[in-house]
Design a protein around this nucleic acid. Structure first.
Ligand code: MN
Ligand code: MN
Ligand code: ZN
Ligand code: ZN
Lengths: 140, 140
DNA sequence: AACTATTTTGCAACATTGTTGCATTGTATT
DNA sequence: AATACAATGCAACAATGTTGCAAAATAGTT
């Protein structure tokens, strides 16, 4: 696990630092997406807030994590799949936010659909965010 | 126009106040969605920031406007169609944010698609936000 | 292992966005 | 016009995010 994390950093030409290792580890452990808030708490005040912001920015730029839009003003982040790289994200899957437990899922097997846009509109990225009740919360 | 605005407020059992009239008017004039920031500027510091926030909240609750999620930490709002009402929004259309001019469009004629979610996931709302270049900016 | 160039971090300060409590003002109703 | 009620403005606060800069850590070289 530690080795995978270090490999990921090296592959992206990032120097190996405590904060980067820790934050990547949190993403690997997490079963859903993480917001800045989650990371700040789960890392136990180990790093400065600013460092977390900058690390997240770096990871997004490198194609290690991707952002998930929301209507509640806190961006969530989740690990990318293999084929994302610097500046070129390919996370064309749907995201799901559970209203009950708050978890944000990457539905890796639900692809974002092709859309017929009005004449003249050119799509560069399509974000689909579904909210509702997740399978864990429905089963309970 | 003024009459339509007053009618909308009355239909929703809202008292007629200067800020509500002005903000509704801004939405009626706007060709896209508006963020709090836009309203604060376009209304020329006529109202307190808090009043704008509360007015937007009220309008959302009444089904007069709907929110549009984003990954840039500022919620956008746009007028709902006829069939939205208190607590029951029916804005099942796609939204488009132009990377060039910044305008956010309601693509009223592009419906959000039906999705096959994994077993156990129940969708309550689906938001589709496309970003790219709008027809105005492409034409220029 | 020590040296050095370059990156990263922590801190302070600030900006933006949004919320809450409460006294004052405005609106609707009689 | 008087009253009951709702909306507003102000102050204070909270959460989220950004920037500049000095100190510390990292990576590559001797
Ligand atoms: Mn994802
Ligand atoms: Mn819309
Ligand atoms: Zn859940
Ligand atoms: Zn445009």
């Amino acid at each position: 696990m530690q080795q995978t994390i270090i490999d990921t950093l090296k592959r992206n030409q990032l120097s190996i630092t405590d904060s980067r290792k820790k934050i990547l580890e949190l993403f690997a452990k997490a079963n859903g997406a993480l917001a800045h808030f989650d990371i700040e708490h789960q890392s136990g005040a180990e790093f400065d807030r600013v460092t977390i912001y900058r690390t997240l920015q770096t990871f997004v730029e490198k194609g290690i994590i991707h952002t998930i839009p929301s209507a509640d003003n806190s961006i969530r982040y989740a690990l990318c799949k293999e084929d994302c790289a610097g500046g070129h994200h390919h996370d064309d899957h749907v995201h799901f936010m559970c209203d009950s437990c708050g978890t944000t899922y990457c539905l890796d097997h639900v692809n974002v659909p092709q859309l017929d846009l009005p004449k003249g509109f050119r799509a560069v990225q399509t974000d689909v965010v579904v909210s509702g009740v997740c399978s864990k919360c429905a089963g309970a």
